[in-house]
Design a protein around this nucleic acid. Structure first.
Length: 288
DNA sequence: AATCCGGGGAT
DNA sequence: ATCCCAGGATT
């Protein structure tokens, strides 16, 4: 399983900038945070711009939060940008400006959770770690468990299974992490898997049983979007992004049909540290 | 364990 | 109109 997937990866891997040998650990960390719930094609141009402007953690730490939020653009979940900014500051303060390779130290950084810490350790430092993202979970669910999709949130049994599969050797483990993720992203996709191009199709439990559908499909609840606070918050952030100066409340009226909702979202954005009010009561990104 | 948190492209 | 995407923090 591991050998065949990594061999496949040697040939099929996408040439992504954060995979190049000249990419720094900081570049890898930035890519991982940007890739949290945002597809590769949308991340790549923003990542290039960020690494050009802020090639090191201390460069980003020194930038104003407003510039960071602006540069985040439409990647979504702008709290990630704020945390990445805080993460850069913490790397400067706690680690002398160098991205740590220790899993516990990584986990302690803002915006770095279990997945991202393991991914940075593997991809930036070539060290063994158990990297379990949505792709790996799906690949393991299908090949080994024989189910169409993994459970909504990772279970302990799933972690144990993922851990058991990871090779002992640092380099082999890091290659498996990248290869298993890539297999899920390019071949063992959620919607229309390309089993004909899969290096382990002949040993896939899900395929062997005729691709049974997801038993929990009918209970999976898709997140609403239209009319939600998330949509309104997004519109407010977009309005502030394009504005050159603080924006009056009246100009944010078309962020949502319900004024009370817009006010609630503004309060939430302020609470989250994404927005602040100036002396005139106009809204803007945080200033130093 | 459940919720909240963006946004866009594919189907 | 629905689904999916290299998740994390909070409760």
């Amino acid at each position: 399983m591991v050998g065949r997937v990594t061999a496949w990866f040697d040939d099929a891997a996408r040439d992504l900038p954060w995979r190049r040998t000249d990419c720094t650990p900081w570049g890898v960390l930035v890519s991982e945070v940007m890739l949290q719930q945002t597809p590769v094609v949308r991340v790549e141009p923003v990542w290039r711009e960020w690494l050009r402007r802020w090639p090191t953690p201390s460069d980003l730490a020194a930038a104003p939060a407003a510039e960071v939020l602006r540069a985040w653009g439409r990647l979504g979940y702008p709290r990630r940008a704020l945390r990445l900014h805080q993460c850069a500051g913490a790397i400067v303060e706690r680690h002398d400006g160098a991205v740590p390779d220790d899993e516990a130290a990584l986990r302690a950084l803002p915006g770095i959770g279990e997945y991202t810490a393991a991914a940075v350790r593997a991809f930036a430092f070539g060290r063994r770690s158990v990297v379990v993202d949505t792709n790996v979970r799906r690949v393991l669910a299908r090949t080994l468990a024989g189910t169409a999709l993994a459970a909504p949130s990772p279970t302990a049994a799933e972690r144990d299974l993922a851990t058991a599969v990871v090779p002992d050797d640092d380099g082999a483990a890091a290659r498996w992490a990248a290869a298993s993720m890539e297999l899920g992203a390019l071949v063992c996709t959620a919607r229309a898997p390309r089993c004909h191009a899969c290096p382990v199709a002949d040993l896939c439990a899900w395929r062997a049983t005729g691709h049974p559908p997801d038993e929990l499909a009918h209970r999976r609840r898709t997140q609403a979007w239209h009319g939600t606070d998330r949509q309104v918050r997004g519109r407010v952030m977009a309005a502030l992004r394009v504005a050159d100066e603080p924006v009056a409340r009246a100009l944010l009226a078309d962020s949502g049909p319900d004024p009370a909702q817009v006010d609630r979202c503004l309060a939430g954005l302020i609470e989250d540290g994404l927005v602040e009010q100036d002396d005139a009561g106009c809204y803007r990104f945080p200033t130093p």
